[in-house]
Structures are given as C-alpha cells and as structure tokens.
Simulated assay, not measured.
Amino acid sequence: MRMASGNGLGQGLQQTLTLAWRTLLQIRRNPWELLDFSIQPILFLLLFLYVFGNAIAGSTDEYLRFMLPGIIVMNMVFVTVYVGHGLNTDLSKGVFDRFRSLPITRWSPLAGRILADMVKQAWSILLLFSLGFLLGFRLEAGIGGLLAMSGLLLVFALAFSWIMVWVGVIARDPEHVQLFGFTALFPVTFVSNVFVPTETMPEWLQVVVSANPVSQLSDASRGLLAGEAVMEPVVWSLLWALGLIVVFAPLALWSLDRRLAN
C-alpha cells in the first residue's frame, strides 16, 4: 500500500477526520443504514422487555433495569459490523486504489472509518437510553454514571471495530462480511449475561459466560449506572479492549497491505 508515510501525526489526524466525515455523509445518501442500527435494537428491547420481562425478573420495571445496559452493549457489538461492511465496499469499488495515489498516511482511511463508527455508536447509546428513560429506566448514579458507561463502551467499541476492519479486508465481498459478522457475533452476545443473570445458568455454562468480554462489559455498564463498585469488570473490559487492539490493528494493516499489493 503506497500511501505517503512522511506525513506527520497532525496531518494524519486531519486526514482521519476528513475521511470520517466522508463516511458519515454516506448516511445521507443511504438513510436505511441509519435505520438498520436504530430499529433493530429498539425491537430487541421492546420484545424482550414485554415478552420475557415478567417471566425472568417478575416485573418489566426490574427487567428493564437489568437488561437495558446489556442491550446497549449487544447493539454496540453488532454496529461494528458496519465498519467492515463499509470498508469492504470501498475496497471492492476501488476507492482504496484511489487513496493510494494520494499523499495520506496508510492508517488514516481505516482510522476514519472507525471514527465514523464511534459517532454511530454514540447515536445508538443515546437512542436506546432515551427509549429506556421513556419506559421507566432511571439513573441511580446520575449523569456521571451515564458518561462513564458511555466512555467505557466507546473505548471497547473502538477496540472491537478492529476485528471487523480485519474481516472487511479479508472478506471477498460485503455480503460475506455481514454473514461472517452476524454468525460469529450471535453466540458471543447471546452466550452472555446480556439477557439473564449468570447465576441462573448451568455451572459449566457460567464459566464460559463469566469469561465472555460481553458479560464483563455488561456487568461494568450496569454497575456504573447503578453507582456500584465495578472496578473488576471495568478493568477486565479495558484489558480486553487493549488486547483486541494489540492483536487486530496490526493484523488488519498487514492484511490490507497484502490485499492492495495483489
């Protein structure tokens, strides 16, 4: 990938912002993308709340307090699929071939795509929390807890997006990105404590669920909103985020170089 490597960090950041804005402008031409990651989580929230709420927690109010942070975490994971899908679309249409002729840093197109995803993630958090508030969810830790939870989710989303960047680079077409992404993410999100407490599961499954980063992030989010002591799940979530970046960011860049070189 023969993009300019002499640009400084400041120029690279400016190029990242420009490319992120380009990605966000695509929503205006394709508003269905916004609806995709807005309507699905709303449906999940309403269906699980009113179909399973009384059976699981005894009341919809209690279940909403437990489930809403988990639904926000689950949606955060699924939204990252759009990073890989959009990146693969650009690669398939030759957009990155045009980038190669421009004096931009090699990492700014990927970083711009991920930064645009952070804006979508923030929108999803705001949307789901606003709906939860209308349904009766109340902050016990105040606005500080909400901001802390949102910050933690965005950090994890930034890290998790690198997996989908890598998938977007190695997949043959955008359809395979979605097929792989959703097929892999469904067990990761459902074999967790997003919808039900870990202690209600068989003992052998509790071990798997407790080690799942989605469970750790859900526990951290619930605790931050409730004002509880959640140092352990917060630390584990940050360690998972760091590990994902260390592994998948270099892998994605290496795979992109190989794809563009062929």
Rank of each mutant, 00 (worst) to 15 (best):
V95M: 09
S255I: 01
R259Q: 06
V81D: 14
S130Y: 01
G223K: 08
Q206N: 01
N54K: 15
L251H: 00
V119H: 03
Y63D: 03
L47I: 15
E199Y: 15
G12H: 07
L49N: 02
L224I: 03
A57M: 06
N88R: 08
F52K: 04
D90K: 14
G144M: 06
I42M: 05
V155F: 01
N7K: 11
S255F: 04
M231P: 05
L205M: 10
L87D: 14
V207F: 13
L47R: 12
N212F: 07
T183H: 09
L224G: 00
W240K: 08
L45V: 13
A111G: 03
R138G: 10
R28F: 11
A157H: 07
G94C: 03
L253N: 09
A141H: 06
I143P: 09
L110K: 02
V209D: 04
L256I: 00
N30G: 06
L256F: 00
S108G: 02
I104T: 04
L242W: 04
D36E: 15
G142A: 07
P197G: 05
A111F: 08
F96E: 00
H85W: 14
W21C: 15
G86R: 15
V246H: 11
F156C: 08
L242N: 02
E33T: 05
W123N: 00
N30A: 13
L131F: 13
G86K: 14
Q15M: 14
L185D: 01
G70P: 08
S92P: 08
M1H: 10
G151H: 08
W166S: 02
L251I: 01
F182N: 13
D36K: 14
G6D: 09
D219M: 13
F96M: 03
F182A: 10
S218P: 07
V51T: 11
L115P: 01
Q206E: 06
S210F: 08
F137S: 03
D117W: 08
N54G: 14
L46W: 12
L115H: 02
S192F: 01
V81H: 13
Q121C: 12
L49E: 07
G136M: 10
G70F: 05
R172E: 09
Y63M: 09
L46F: 09
V51K: 02
L46M: 13
D97C: 01
F248G: 03
G53E: 10
I143V: 14
V77G: 05
W32M: 15
T189P: 09
A111V: 05
V247W: 15
V235D: 06
L46C: 09
V95F: 05
L47A: 15
